[in-house]
Design a protein around this nucleic acid. Structure first.
Lengths: 340, 340
DNA sequence: CTGAAAGCGCTTACAG
DNA sequence: CTGAAAGCGCTTACAG
């Protein structure tokens, strides 16, 4: 059904119907109520493309997933983030355009999305420590919100981030308080901004405690269980093994747990582990006393917030850039204890 | 840049430029080559909305994710499926519209997507054994491809499915050959079509072997590690415990493994496990000799195929409905052996 | 092989 | 508070 047909059906002009449905103030409230109800009953909804053509902006947010060999979307963290963004979008009647793009075609992809008018704005995912996308999007003129931060970017921009540095500083401090002195770090790829900051937090806490750092105790890789497993075996086999490990994801922690048990040791007794916990829906670390001591911050919530901020920014009143720094909570579980 | 501007720039009429870029045959090949190159250089791409308005069809496929309390998208299987569909879409210059919709608003959501013109077709995910969506989509007139099958739907429709019944029949047969007689089944929620078929396969194989079935050896729940862990403990604690377990996902298998190890037993010695393996990118069961004996079928590939079939069907030549039945391969790993 | 013009379904200044 | 009409950027019959 078109606006024309619908307007005829209800005996009003297209103009009035359009205004009523779009919430313009000039229209009589009784008329509006009647028209909204009629639209619902007859299943009329304005064609989104005609709407775009007339107004020039799309109620669609873009998520461009950089594909590096294996797609990032396979990362369970990304799935939860998308779930959060999706929830926010359905609540606000926005749509999501999802595209998967090879690393070296990012610029082209954003330009295409913009010139085809497919999206009103974009969420930038997995920013690298010195990411070129914000500058690119500024020049294209596409509104965006970064999930994370881009250290190198000077102009003000919207971002939503967890205080990664502080979280790892606190977690390291917590282990130090328990009496640990050899603490390992199994981080994500430190080229990503979040992992870089986590490392800073870890180093700062050690430095503040007057401890030297040992490169053999630090690793940086894609955050899989296999990585946690392999590194845990390596660390436990050292002549002077760490008594505690800090890691950047529950996938890694699961791998560590596996290795520890295969060695006949017990987590939280022979070895302490603190993990960053994105509170993934499919992987619960949420018993009354959680298994892993963790820095917890829900990535799903971050997805909601990113979508919300972006939608505000896309809207007609062109809201200013926002910055949201979320604090992770330090949740004590059964995987930590003083060193033996 | 608009078509008008671009046409003026290259000194041609809008008509010719449009035809050249859309591959119409009437245009001189030299002219076409020149215009395509010029478009690339100047970054011209037709506005998708104007294009829709003129042609009436959108090069966008919809993925509507049913949200049941926790969103399905948190399911890592879904993430891999989307990655596959996304790859296919970028290759064919299609876009993906992702929406998250509560179970009881599905019908409304599909109608909205159709009437707003937001999608040219839709992939139906996680069909239940007697799913109403195909009939709904038929009546709305929205092309679709089902990932899985809908037993109750009579009219011909496009689907892509794994031969779940055969996979579980073969896996059960494999365990029977090894000498197992008490075989448990930890299935997904059997209201879903795939889980229903898996159960049929398991029951058929047992029946063909002349064995009776034991309800205490069967469970049906959301496929989490916690489920596998809890059920494994329960099964191992039975007076007459099973010597083998069949399960529907590697998440479940991981939980079983955990329980077995905590009981001081060894997988592939004291207990055999065969799992269905969707070959998820983030969870590899792909060592030279994989850890779990598995029925393997890549869900990412299924995603690609669904997108491909849907795109063909959306296209102007209105391709007939297709049926793709994929066979899972039975891959022998280290988690199976004859019963002790 | 090429072009002028109508039309796709909306929104919104302008006029009343 | 309401409406007639122009215009958004394309595609495509129709005419040449």
């Amino acid at each position: 059904m078109t606006l024309k047909e619908f307007a005829k059906l209800v005996g009003m002009s297209q103009t009035t119907v359009s205004r009523a449905l779009n919430g313009h103030p000039e229209v009589n409230e009784k008329t509006r109520a009647r028209l909204i109800e009629a639209a619902r009953q007859h299943g009329y909804a304005a064609n989104a493309h005609a709407q775009f053509l007339a107004t020039g902006h799309a109620s669609i947010i873009g998520c461009v997933i950089p594909v590096t060999g294996r797609s990032e979307i396979v990362n369970p963290i990304y799935a939860d983030f998308l779930a959060g963004a999706g929830e926010e979008c359905s609540a606000r009647r926005f749509d999501i355009n999802l595209s998967m793009v090879a690393d070296d075609e990012q610029a082209q992809a954003y330009r295409r999305l913009k010139s085809k008018g497919l999206i009103g704005g974009v969420i930038v995912q997995f920013p690298r420590h010195d990411d070129s996308r914000p500058a690119l999007l500024d020049s294209i003129g596409l509104p965006y919100v970064v999930h994370g931060r881009v250290t190198g970017h000077d102009a003000p921009y919207s971002w939503v981030d967890v205080n990664n540095q502080r979280a790892f500083e606190r977690a390291t401090g917590f282990l130090l308080q328990l009496g640990h002195r050899r603490i390992a770090l199994l981080n994500g790829i430190e080229d990503f901004d979040f992992a870089h900051r986590r490392r800073q937090g870890y180093l700062t806490a050690l430095r503040d405690a007057g401890l030297s750092t040992d490169p053999a105790l630090m690793a940086s890789r894609e955050m899989t269980a296999a990585y946690g497993y392999g590194q845990a075996l390596r660390l436990l086999d050292m002549p002077d093994p760490p008594t505690a490990i800090l890691c950047s994801a529950t996938t890694i922690a699961t791998g560590i747990r596996q290795a520890v048990e295969e060695c006949g040791l017990t987590l939280g007794v022979d070895l302490s582990v603190v993990t960053f916990d994105d509170d993934l829906s499919y992987y619960a670390n949420r018993d009354t006393v959680p298994f892993f001591t963790a820095m917890r911050s829900g990535v799903r919530m971050a997805g909601r917030l990113c979508a919300q901020r972006l939608i505000e920014r896309i809207g007609p009143r062109n809201a200013p850039a926002t910055q949201d720094l979320l604090e992770a909570e330090l949740v004590v579980g059964r995987s930590t204890a003083p060193p033996r």
